[in-house]
Design a protein around this nucleic acid. Structure first.
Lengths: 333, 333
DNA sequence: CTGAAAGCGCTTACAG
DNA sequence: CTGAAAGCGCTTACAG
């Protein structure tokens, strides 16, 4: 006996209530056009409750050709610590709109991406989300073409996308320093990466404030290289007044190098960063960081497909500063 | 015009191939019982390829009453940094078995859990996974009763579950220290938590090695309290030889306190920990840590439902040590 | 207001 | 080997 044969069906509810299946369908799906009599309505509701009726949504979907289902393809979000918030946001929005999320993690492999998207399309997902770990141009898997899709944390011509507003983020980080009185001796830490959206926008945002960087300490965006680069930089004798780290991992490495050099944060050196990962609040002193709005990215994207708002726009989501103890006010004489 | 009316249907493929729908169905679903003629077979395949046919899985499911779909309900896994690996493991296993994952993040709210599970059941998911952020007893939402379910990182009577083998983990951590020659001055850092599975099993595992702890430094399992507790402990004058930290976050706090006290790792104090989060490899020196096998947990659990291996067993997944630089060999005289 | 009927796109015995 | 038919559980015009 298959499991579905255990489930009570609309026909059974109708029989027990003494009405037609059509009538039962109307009251249970809340469509009141036909003005079912109140007593019939009550009998159907009572029967449904008594029998524990649950609609078979796969059957309903076959008829209505809408599944209330959204597929999310992600390269490696669930691995990447805090980027899992994209998934959480998308799930919350989906649930909120009576939808359910299909999720596939592909590790970025194009073959897997295509297969996963195809599985979703074959299951008649109402729309597809394609999410990236870091903001970048996207190449859609072939099986997504012609489907309703929104890009999350990535972008492509003619496709609606939701991305973090890194331009404002750069401005926010620089402003935080300037409002504390910093003007001189501000260094950017992190390798220039003209190909990387975040780098381009953040540096443009910083420049837009009029803040004059004293220089750049190049290093790849990870703790270990950042530690080495900042250590070497400090050993040259320069003492910076403030560091803008291009992410929290770089900031961790910078903290370590600063500590080794006997420099205090924020007394000697102020630090501001991007990401606002958990790390930011764990460091000593806690790190001021501009938050990547992953939850909001996922939420908005799922909402766009749930509400069929699929015009090819670029939605920029604000990146707020989480101010913490790593920035000191400069006393000007 | 609805989207589904654009999709090419099995009937169209059959017509173009000049065979019955039944014949087309047989060749396309690879069921060879009827020994379709090779030329008919080829014509069907050609027609399907030419028309770009894709089966409507929602229709197939209605007929076969299996959806090749697995639902995953998680309290807050996608938020919790590395626990997102459960999702990744489950997704990989699902895909590997031709299934797709429904995901819902509930924030641990029972109402949301129940609603989400109901949405999955209504969509005829073949089985459900219920996952917890940290290993604990589980209370299933009512809508999951009677469904095929496996518990991930949590447990309940009579329900199959997949949990990390924390007992061996405790033994592994203690053994790592002992093999390096540590016998004396080994302290456990972290608040005793008799209600917490990980605490019970880890301490039991440590005890099982015969290692005699010199004491415990109690503190809640977070960086800040750990920093404060270890700092106070050190200020009492005791210098430990080794620390077993109950998670990586505690280890971070301990590192900070040790550094402040001018103690070197591992020269003065060896440190071993549990979790093997990203943090472990970022610290200086890199931290030896016993890995939480979240990916494997998710993978195995999804595989169990995909293969219908749903006997109510407790599956314990090994927790391997990631050895790094934080443990020093003790030179005995 | 209610009921009989068609149909969504498949699969699967069942006759030939 | 092939084809006509029933049916999975719903929704929705369409007559009465």
């Amino acid at each position: 006996m298959s499991r579905s044969s255990h489930r009570v069906t609309l026909a059974q509810v109708a029989r027990q209530a003494g009405v037609s299946r059509a009538a039962a369908s109307f009251v249970l799906s809340g469509r009141d056009e036909m003005r079912i009599s109140a007593t019939a309505r009550d009998r159907v509701l009572a029967a449904a409750a008594e029998l524990g009726y649950r609609p078979n949504l796969t059957a309903r979907s076959l008829r209505t050709s809408v599944t209330h289902t959204i597929g999310l393809i992600s390269d490696t979000i669930a691995t990447e610590p805090f980027a899992g918030r994209i998934v959480r946001g998308a799930s919350a929005a989906a649930l909120h709109h009576g939808h359910l999320l299909f999720l596939a993690e592909t590790g970025g492999d194009p073959g897997t991406e295509d297969r996963a998207a195809r599985e979703m399309v074959d299951r008649q997902a109402d729309g597809l989300l394609y999410a990236a770990m870091f903001t970048r141009p996207a190449t859609l898997p072939p099986s997504m073409h012609g489907q309703p899709v929104v890009l999350v944390n990535c972008y492509a011509d003619g496709v609606p996308c939701v991305i973090p507003d890194e331009l404002i983020a750069g401005r926010t980080a620089a402003s935080a320093l300037m409002e504390a009185g910093h003007r001189d001796g501000v260094y950017l830490v992190g390798e220039p990466a003209p190909d990387v959206f975040a780098w381009r926008e953040r540096t443009a945002g910083i420049a837009a404030t009029g803040l004059d960087l004293a220089g750049t300490v190049p290093c790849s965006w990870w703790p270990e290289p950042a530690f080495a680069a900042v250590r070497d930089f400090l050993s040259s004798g320069t003492v910076p007044r403030a560091l803008i780290c291009l992410n929290d991992r770089i900031a961790l490495g910078a903290y370590q190098a600063l500590a080794e050099a006997g420099l205090r944060i924020p007394g000697d050196v102020s630090v501001v960063s991007f990401d606002d990962s958990e790390l930011a609040s764990w460091l000593r002193p806690a790190l001021s960081s501009v938050a990547l709005p992953h939850y909001e990215l996922g939420f908005l994207a799922a909402e766009l497909v749930a509400t069929s708002a699929l015009t090819p726009e670029i939605h920029r989501v604000p990146m707020p500063l989480s101010p913490r103890a790593s920035i000191a006010k400069v006393i000007s004489l």
